[in-house]
Simulated scan of single mutants.
Amino acid sequence: MITTLCYIEKDNCYLMLHRNKKAQDINQGKWIGIGGKLEPRESCDECNLREVKEETGLDLVEAKCRGIITFVQNDGYTEYMFLFTSDSFKGELKECDEGTLRWVSKDELDTLNMWEGDRIFLDCLRKDLPFFSLKLVYNGDNLVEAWLNNEKV
């Protein structure tokens, strides 16, 4: 599966989605960025724009692809996620049917319930790393291995 995830920035905050509305949600109770699955014939950029619009009501003016994250489950399932950031958008926030949207201070991120691997790529964004590749290996909900640009983290 191929997905996108976008961290929208404003006033030293990220727009975060608390996944608390959908039943049978793999992200239930977690805080994540904005994103979703690519549709047929859609580019990663198009998916990012569409998902942000659908989930937030915002139109991105510009977005930058910052890296690719490979998620691997011990059962062999693999997901490739293109990670974006944007600080250029227009429109008004709307209610999201997948969870609660909230602007969260970057200093507060470490206090949120999120996937352990998300903390690694958020740190890459915090350090303003150039385009990076991150491989995260999970056994269920537990991160068991992480590789950043082919170096074990």
Rank of each mutant, 00 (worst) to 15 (best):
K53D: 02
C47L: 06
F132C: 05
L112R: 12
N27K: 10
N139R: 12
K22L: 13
D59Q: 13
I32K: 06
C96Y: 03
G76M: 09
L49V: 07
G57E: 00
D107Y: 11
P40N: 10
Y80E: 10
D11Q: 11
D128I: 14
L148K: 12
L83E: 12
C6A: 14
M1H: 11
N150C: 06
S86I: 14
G36Y: 02
Q28K: 15
L125H: 11
Y14F: 15
C65F: 01
F132P: 05
R66C: 11
C44F: 09
W147Y: 10
E108V: 15
L58Q: 03
E55Y: 00
E145S: 14
N142P: 00
C13F: 02
N142F: 07
E62F: 14
L148S: 03
T3N: 10
D45H: 11
E42H: 09
D45R: 05
T85F: 01
A23G: 15
G99K: 09
R41D: 02
Y80M: 06
V153P: 02
F89N: 07
K135D: 04
W103L: 03
I2T: 11
T4N: 07
N74D: 05
E55Q: 14
R102Y: 11
E151V: 15
G35S: 07
Y7W: 02
K10S: 14
L83V: 14
D75S: 08
W31N: 09
S88T: 13
M81Y: 02
L129W: 10
L136H: 10
L122Q: 11
L83K: 03
G36R: 08
N12Q: 14
G57P: 03
V61D: 03
I34R: 01
K90V: 10
S133L: 08
E54L: 05
L129Q: 05
E151T: 15
V144S: 06
K135F: 04
R19S: 03
